[in-house]
Amino acid sequence: MNSRNLIGRAIVLALLFLGAMLVLTPFFWMLSLSFKSQAEIFSPTISLFPDQLQWDNYRAAFERTTLLRFLVNGLVVCGGILFFQILFALPCAYALAQRRFRGRSLIFGLVLAGLLVPFHVTAIPIFLGLAELRLLNTYGALILPFVASVFGIFLFRQAISAMPVELFEAARIDGLSEGAIAWRIALPLAMPAATAFAIFSVVAHWNDLFWPLIAISDPALAPPPRGILYFRDEESGTDVGPLMAAAVVIVAPMVVAFLLAQRRFIQGLAVGGLKG
């Protein structure tokens, strides 16, 4: 190890730290503001650390808005979407991967073609359809459009294709029905793919604003991103502390989950790049 190398390392590390600081600034600032009093926020001097740690903003955020409700909505919507996505995708993926039947390549073709279609493209007709069914402004409106995940089918199919055929034949001989094979054999073995897909799906829908903006107007149904905009617009930007506290609360679940399971999280989101 010579000195030139050491200097090189020092420069690289310094730059990486600087970049990381820049990237993290919004997070620091959000935390910082969420703990500052109104007076401190509007004072002309700036400091990263609040004078004193005070939880008033958080109390205000929960008291003055239905923040808790937003979180519950997010949970219901993400959970509902994921449940139905797997319910539809897994048996189909199993059939595509391990069974031979007429129309199989046609259905797989549909799956591949479906990967090309971003959700935004289907928004108008789905909105019309939900309006026709009088489902707008319900949880159903937030969940239903996403139940057919071609991406889920694709991921599961790839995973199940890689499993040995003999395993499924053994299961047939052991008396498992085809449905039982899908749920009792294929799903447990496809857990890595299922985890990646679950992370991808939950993050995508927890963070989505586009569809909630369209499908609901009732704040009581708003998932977190839609909710925080209601909050911001009501307060017209003056009540910064509680707004930042609300932002912290909304960002926290995904960030904490990410920090706890970094590898899986990164895998799940990276695999999402395959989707159109």
Binding site: P164, E166, E169, A170, A171, R172, L176, L189
Partner: peptide, 20 residues
């Protein structure tokens, strides 16, 4: 008759034990 209904048992080359 399906495989299950034939009351046959099969031992596979790869054993095909359920890994989970």
């Amino acid at each position: 008759l399906t495989a299950a209904e034939r009351n046959v048992a099969m031992v596979f080359q790869s054993y095909a034990l359920y890994p989970h």
